[in-house]
Design a protein around this nucleic acid. Structure first.
Lengths: 337, 337
DNA sequence: TTGAAAGCGTTACCAG
DNA sequence: CTGGTAACGCTTTCAA
């Protein structure tokens, strides 16, 4: 006597209980072919008597598709990547795809290992969110599985990639500051080996130059894309008595840290010093004051990634539009004489 | 002529190329039995000539285990749940388990659907992070798959659950406020139908009573665990001219919103009004001022969940210690006369 | 319409 | 030690 509470029934059991062949049950389940009304009835009845649920593993093995897309993110706790993942999920969910998420922690070796894991689990495609993998490595993986990479300008048979224009975003930020009358603008860098961080630095430099402002090297301080780095950066600026009226933090997290450092020194934002960030994390809307920043439309990016993936998987056609950066003017920047 | 770049070789191909039986290759791969040195050598060689990688799908089907644990979270973007997921991942990663994450968005129906999806994908166990599923439903699922639920005091054959003491945490928070001289303490509620939120409210009420402070109903304002709710809540307090010296926000997000509302009205924190939160999100360390709050050790919670899961899956033994809440005193509360 | 049977890529039992 | 072979649970020809 079987207790079918936990052990799930199989297609065979359904078939024999319904007095038909497994093939018929399968056809009924997938609508692959017509099934006579009487058989259909009994099959339906048996199915929910036995509480039958198809085994997706077996299906996957047979059909060569897991309906899973692997996501290589860098960190689960980053609000930045989370938005993109939500976008991906929203885009592929309806098509019956689930996400298998793994984090690479900005470490090429770990990322490579995770991608291998993903491929080993036979995901139908993998979405790579930034990271340190080389273009070559990614191209290599794309021989084995369709890939869409965010943060790379890559193109291939089974490979799509796109970037947001970080350089341009940084230019916009600095332009905004200059328009508001700032000329002595400090810059909190991101990690040296981070492409986006470099692009933002370049944007900062070039825009200053375009406005005939000579960049003061002492105003460019190291950071690490974390709050702590921003805090230290500003402390360094303060300790060395630099003169500046505004800070361009290369990401919002750094801006938060910077803001706290200023707070600790009783310097008001934006009254005494203006701050502009980059990313537009959700929480930047609620900092005090709300942070003016360059918006990265990560959710849309995620949707785009999901759609591209679906397209490569032969699911959809709709052209995917690449979202753009934009300046979010809030309250952390003040116009000065 | 085959190009083995993309199409992965199978165990059979390895076997025949090495002139041995599939069984032998399998045994070699899994160390299930001794394999003679010469055969081992050739197998090894063939394996990397063909760049063979076992198909985990087939393995799973055969062995009845996917080495995947399903996680039902409520939101991918919540720093709160992210910490727990990282903990889970860290706990199970070494044992070769991957996480299949799905979000229920605090909606019982959606959660149920996601759990079904997870089970359909044959995860070896599912971790449920809070949510609106009834204890009965969860017990039901546990007949089908091992479950560990966070936010429930549940126990069963294939079921473990534990809570953090939200009531106690709220008491600690209010005690702290009272110790600092506050007596008119406003409370920003969480969602009405959220158990933790209710526990925190109860803690607030009872602690006030314990200190012989009559709770003023006008000081208890609705919120929704989001920044926007906290903002509105404080605006309501201000608009109705309530007298209060401190705010207990039932979570950090609400506290952020509250803080912004105060900022907008030129009320200083903690000089004019003190704020205490609940959760201790990472970012609470960097708000201005850094937020005094009740810490929920979510990462540790996640580790605990992972370990419990491993234990149920027969992987480990180590007793799992349930982490406790604790007050994080920072700078948003001021002592008053 | 329907059924029989051949796989999908593994593992493990049973002989040898 | 090693090889055959029967599963695991499903889909899909191929015939009927």
């Amino acid at each position: 006597m079987k207790n079918d509470d936990s052990s799930t029934a199989t297609l065979y059991e359904v078939a024999s209980a319904a007095g038909v062949s497994p093939a018929t049950v399968s056809r009924f389940l997938n609508g692959t072919a017509k099934v006579s009304d009487d058989k259909r009835k009994t099959i339906e009845r048996v199915i929910d008597e036995l509480n039958y649920k198809p085994n997706r593993l077996a299906q996957s093995l047979k059909m060569g598709s897991t309906r899973t897309i692997g996501v290589l993110t860098q960190s689960l706790e980053s609000g930045y990547f989370s938005q993109a993942m939500i976008g991906i999920e929203d885009a592929v969910k309806q098509a019956g795809y689930a996400l298998l998420i793994m984090s690479g922690h900005w470490h090429a070796d770990e990322e490579a290992e995770r991608v291998e894991l993903l491929i080993g689990r036979r995901v139908d495609g993998v979405a790579i969110l930034s990271g340190k993998l080389s273009d070559g490595q990614i191209q290599g993986y794309s021989q084995r599985v369709p890939i869409v990479a965010f943060g790379r300008k890559l193109e291939g048979e089974r490979l799509m990639g796109f970037c947001l224009d970080n350089y341009r975003g940084a230019c916009d930020a600095v332009d905004h500051l200059v328009e508001q009358g700032h000329r002595r603008i400090a810059f909190i860098m991101g990690p040296e080996d981070h492409e986006d961080a470099q692009a933002r630095l370049a944007g900062y430099r070039d825009t200053l130059a375009r406005h005939k402002i000579t960049p003061d090297p002492a105003l460019i301080v190291p950071g690490d894309f974390q709050e702590s780095g921003g805090l230290l950066a500003v402390n360094q600026l303060l300790a060395t008595n630099q003169r500046f009226t505004a800070i361009f933090a290369s990401n919002d997290l750094s801006a938060y840290g910077a803001r706290l450092a200023l707070y600790r020194s009783n310097i008001r934002v934006p009254d005494d010093i203006s701050i502009i960030g980059f990313d537009d994390l959700h929480s930047s809307m609620y900092t005090t004051p709300p942070l003016t920043t360059v918006r990265q439309p990560l959710y849309e990016v995620g949707k785009g990634i999901g759609r591209m993936m679906l397209a490569m998987l032969g699911q959809k056609q709709a052209e995917v539009e690449i979202p753009q950066l934009g300046l979010m003017v809030r309250e952390s920047v003040r116009r000065i004489a």
